[in-house]
Design a protein around this nucleic acid. Sequence first.
DNA 1: TCATGCACTTAGCAGTCTTATC
DNA 2: GATAAGACTGCTAAGTGCATGA
Length: 568
Amino acid sequence: MKLFWLRISFIFAYLWEEDNANNGKKWSTLEHKGPFFPPEYEPLPSNVCFVYNGKSIKLSLAAEEVATFYAKMLDHEYTTKSVFQENFFNDWREEMTEEEREQINKLSKCDFSHMAKYFLEKTEEKKAMTKEQKQVLKEENNRLTEEYGFCLLDGHKEKIGNFRVEPPGLFRGRGEHPKMGKLKKRILPEDITINCSKDSKIPEAPKGHRWRKVQHDDTVTWLASWVENVQGNLKYIMLNPSSKLKGEKDWQKYEVARKLKLKVETIRRLYREDWKNREMKIRQRGVALYFIDKLALRAGNEKEEGETADTVGCCSLRVEHITLHEEKGGQEFVVEFDFLGKDSIRYYNEVPVESRVFRNLKLFMENKDPEDDLFDRINTIYLNKHLNQSMPGLTAKVFRTFNASTTLQDQLNKLTTADMTLEEKLLSYNRANRAVAILCNHQRAAPKTFEKSMQNMLDKLDVAKMELKEAKKEHKKAGTERTRKLVEKKEAAVKRLEEQLKKLQLQMTDREENKVIALGTSKLNYLDPRISVAWCKKFNVPIEKIYNKTQRDKFAWAIDMTEEDFQF
DNA sequence: TCATGCACTTAGCAGTCTTATC
DNA sequence: GATAAGACTGCTAAGTGCATGA
């Protein structure tokens, strides 16, 4: 297997260098069945009604379907937001008949509760299905996946990531999204572009329909696409991360980050020089790069105002997002960051910076309003062009990968020793992973049952402690009776309980530290898997303890090729 | 040079499946 | 076998960055 990857690695390195010469060709043959469509709308039974102003109304099919989208979300916080309500109501009215439109003109008079109750019952029914019924559904699902979930790429069967067309519904943006609640329309085959090879079996459109277009573009990796109506974005059917194509791309990403490791000191020297430059633009570039490097901030592309939630990255930071403190918490030159990043996740950080950076920031903020751009002379395109001159292939996002992987490697080296138990090693790993997640600001809502499950663990801990005490007492007693067998038994029990206790305590520590931090994102997207694989080999940790099945599939390339002495 | 479109990666959430515990 | 907790997975939104064309 190793030989296989070495060979692939050689071929791949070659292909990669030759990518341009190859005109960006991604495959030679591509065959698939096309996407799978969600089921047709199933009308509500006649006894389930929509009530308006106290009167029950039978809605037209189109209006009823959209009403059910809202009814299904009734217990969600979304539906309490006025933007959501307004967008939904406007779009809903567009689906209504003339007559319905005339009749229904205030959302506050609409009563969706009967519909909501009906769907709740449906969910309960589904839950209460027998094992056999559930098995039938599962098998049907497996059959679908078998039929639609794979494609043939260059003769190899590859798993598709998302083979289903997104069903219609209400758009749920993140944060204060101006388009939340808008109707995501049903996608028809007539909206879909199919991409496959010319000589392959062209997927058949569902009966009575035809594709918007069938194309044979071997420079892209997607199988099908359509334009979504809410934001006008393209959506794609693409390969699963376990596919060769995606794996190679992933590998390439980490190789670029490793290259940066060799160059980063030079780049740092250069941007520090920039802080002193006469030109404002160069100074801004230097400080922005410093933030991207030191804090692993995202690049911060420009966004169309009013079309999406108001979020920023480095280049799009505004004056209002930072506060300068000559002194804070006993430290000099502290920059306080407070802004919403990707997915409207808050980034808050107090960072001591070098005096020259501090002075520059003051300068950038002079005579500006809070809503003005902090770095008004630069943007991500300019920044990336500059970075590319320092190192081919280098862009702002590479710093995040580099920073994350370097942190994991350093932390693992620091935190693990060979004499640790498996549990201690795993805690070390999670701590290293956590350091990265904190750096990248990967947050999650604390699990809803967190407090309760923590209490359960505390109770368990108490029980374990008590049992241990009891066992020790027994042990002592047995010892005086000089019955060897009993002594041994009790000793074993004491040992077992002590181990259990220790395990439980470690688990709890891990859980508490992890409360609002999401480890998965960095693990999946930023940490070179070879670091983890090598660590597992070196410290005798089964790889299954670090990566689950999906992750092992995604990182198959790394698992096969990595030796225990690999360092990022 | 700039705007725009396209392709692809990164992201958190929520529903589902699995496992542990009684 | 039931139940609850936790892990996993799928979904789809929201980023990045490159290409293209005026």
